[in-house]
Write a protein that binds this DNA or RNA. Structure first.
Length: 487
RNA sequence: GGUACCGUGGCCGAGCGGCUAGGCAAAGCUCUGCAAAAGCUUCUACAACAGUUCGAAUCUGUUCGGUACCUCCA
């Protein structure tokens, strides 16, 4: 490989060569979901993006520890640091225990990611499992003088912090403007500064999820869990911290502040943020009510869709855009992705059956180089895919006898295609999954039809084809036999 | 209101000073009992205006659209 991996870093606002802190190892932390409702497609996009990053880092030989948390406590409805957390609210609404909510949506989250063929992270810690660590960290921030306690609630002192550190380094905002922003109606508030946020929140008597702390019974603030858990599993300084772009101005900004206030270190060397999935040009989000659930998409059970699209179609669709660009979600675009993926999968099957020649009429090496170059340029999957489609074209041309390939090049091409499509991009061939019995049955039926055809008994052959179509099985005649696909 | 970002062919989407991706659609061709599919080929776009430059989709300025963040959000 000639090129080096480069990553865009939100902290420095530039793309630079990736150099891990410990040679050969990568520590990566990605902010996981708050499990109080179903994961929607926008959420899925972020985790698919990081899945490809994870897979590529593994592929180029790094030992990666990928930590992704589950937020199952302490995430409040607003930033007023009062009222219910999201789990309590939902639990009350449905008259169940908060942990039942957590359990239900954690399972849903895992199922969604599995459908998209994401690899599981190395560690998936929960906020409720790390209360002690969060209390310890809060204590230390208090001891270091960057927090204060009011009536059992501990607040981070942004004003004090910002005298010594650049609070808005990540978001590049003007601190004075943030401080003077009048959009928020200032009610009676126990916070000293309007940007101050809670590290620990005093529980009201009716609260179900609460823990004993030096400041009385309460629960942790939203931001402290990521600081506590990333430090615990990756150390005070690690390589990559990721998440959706919408986490930059608040969550990640506060996370950095907590780490600096506690350990005097900037937690991550590279901050990586994925862009939003839009729908009709507008961000998909739970609060806007325009979100798609993956299940609705797979089944086509949504007013904006003409039909269902398989998980791999959606994954492929996502990979056709760069992770830092917004991606607009539309029926036509999904349809295009479905056909494109099909073409790719056909070529993947075809490549091992290609006839070889003495020499190759094109350079496999060049294609390989450009695929790696694309991935090394901040994980540019659309360009990598474009290069792979170049290979697809050659595969088809060789199959038609219009181009040629040598034995060694064929092995290399096969390797490249399989490695990238399946291992790095994480796509899989959905049609072949669990179909061995059907396959045997279909061979038999198609054999009968083939006999009928050679006897010019087209009535029978057409009857078989039509009946199969009604059952949702489409058959296609080729030069060497007949293929079928479940529709 | 403040702060960013974006506007690319019929659609989706790369590109970030010269070589002008890719997918889908469309057209033509090949294959073919019919049908469908598949394969190949073709199709030169960068919101508008002004500027910098030998050369701009790419840099600068202005205008017009759009979006995001400043509330929870991936």
């Amino acid at each position: 490989m000639k090129s080096q991996l480069k990553i865009y870093n939100t902290l420095t606002k530039e793309t630079s060569v990736f150099e891990p802190i410990h040679k050969g190892n990568v520590g990566m932390y990605v902010c996981g979901p708050t499990v109080y409702s179903n994961a929607h497609l926008g959420n899925a996009r972020t985790y698919v993006s990081f899945d490809v990053i994870f897979r590529y880092l593994l592929h180029i030989g790094y030992k990666v520890r990928y930590v992704r948390n589950i937020t199952d406590a302490g995430h409040l409805e607003g930033d007023q640091d009062e009222g219910d957390d999201k789990f309590a609210k939902k639990a009350k609404l449905e008259q169940v225990e908060p942990m039942e909510i957590v359990q239900r949506y954690t399972i849903d989250f895992h199922e969604v990611l599995k459908a998209f063929n994401n690899l599981p992270p190395s560690i998936e810690p929960t906020a409720t499992g790390h209360i002690i660590e969060q209390i310890e960290m809060t204590k230390k921030i208090l001891a270091n003088g960057y927090a204060y306690e009011v009536n059992g609630t501990v607040y981070f002192d942004v004003e004090k912090f910002s005298k010594e550190f650049n609070y808005t380094a990540l978001s590049n905002r003007n601190l004075d403007e943030l401080l003077n922003n009048t959009r928020e109606l200032d009610g009676q508030n126990e916070k000293k500064g309007r940007l101050d946020f809670a590290l620990w929140i005093k529980a009201k008597p009716e609260h179900l999820m609460k823990w004993v702390s030096p400041w009385g019974e309460g629960f942790p603030g939203w931001h402290i869990e990521c600081s506590a858990m990333s430090s615990k599993y990756l150390g005070n300084e690690f390589d990559i911290h990721g998440g959706g772009m919408d986490l930059v101005p608040t969550h990640h900004t506060n996370e950095i502040a907590q780490n600096l206030a506690c350990h005097h270190t900037q937690p991550a060397k590279y901050w990586v943020h994925t862009n939003m999935l839009t729908i009709n040009g507008q961000k998909m989000s739970k609060s806007l009510g325009n979100s798609f659930l993956p299940a609705e998409l797979f089944e086509g059970n949504h007013s904006l869709l003409e039909k269902g699209y398989s998980p791999m179609t959606v994954r492929f669709f996502m990979l056709q855009a760069h992770y830092r660009s917004t991606l607009d979600f539309r029926n036509e675009a999904l349809q295009a992705a479905e056909k494109g993926l099909n073409r790719l999968m056909n070529a993947c099957k075809l490549v091992s059956h290609l006839k070889t020649s003495e020499t190759s009429s094109f350079s496999v090496e060049d294609i390989k180089e450009s695929v790696y170059a694309a991935m090394n340029e901040d994980f540019n999957t659309p360009i990598a895919l474009a290069q792979i489609f170049e290979a697809v074209r050659y595969i088809n041309l060789i199959n038609d006898g219009k181009e040629s390939i040598s034995e060694t090049d064929k092995t290399q091409l096969e390797n490249l295609i399989n490695t990238f499509v399946f291992e790095v991009l994480g796509l899989k061939n959905e049609q072949e999954a669990g179909a061995d019995k059907i396959d045997g049955l279909m061979k038999m039926i198609l054999g009968v039809r083939s006999d009928a055809k050679t006897k010019k008994d087209f009535a029978t052959s057409d009857f078989i084809r039509d009946q199969l179509k009604e059952l949702g099985i489409e058959i296609k005649d080729h030069k060497e036999g007949t293929n079928y696909s479940l529709t």
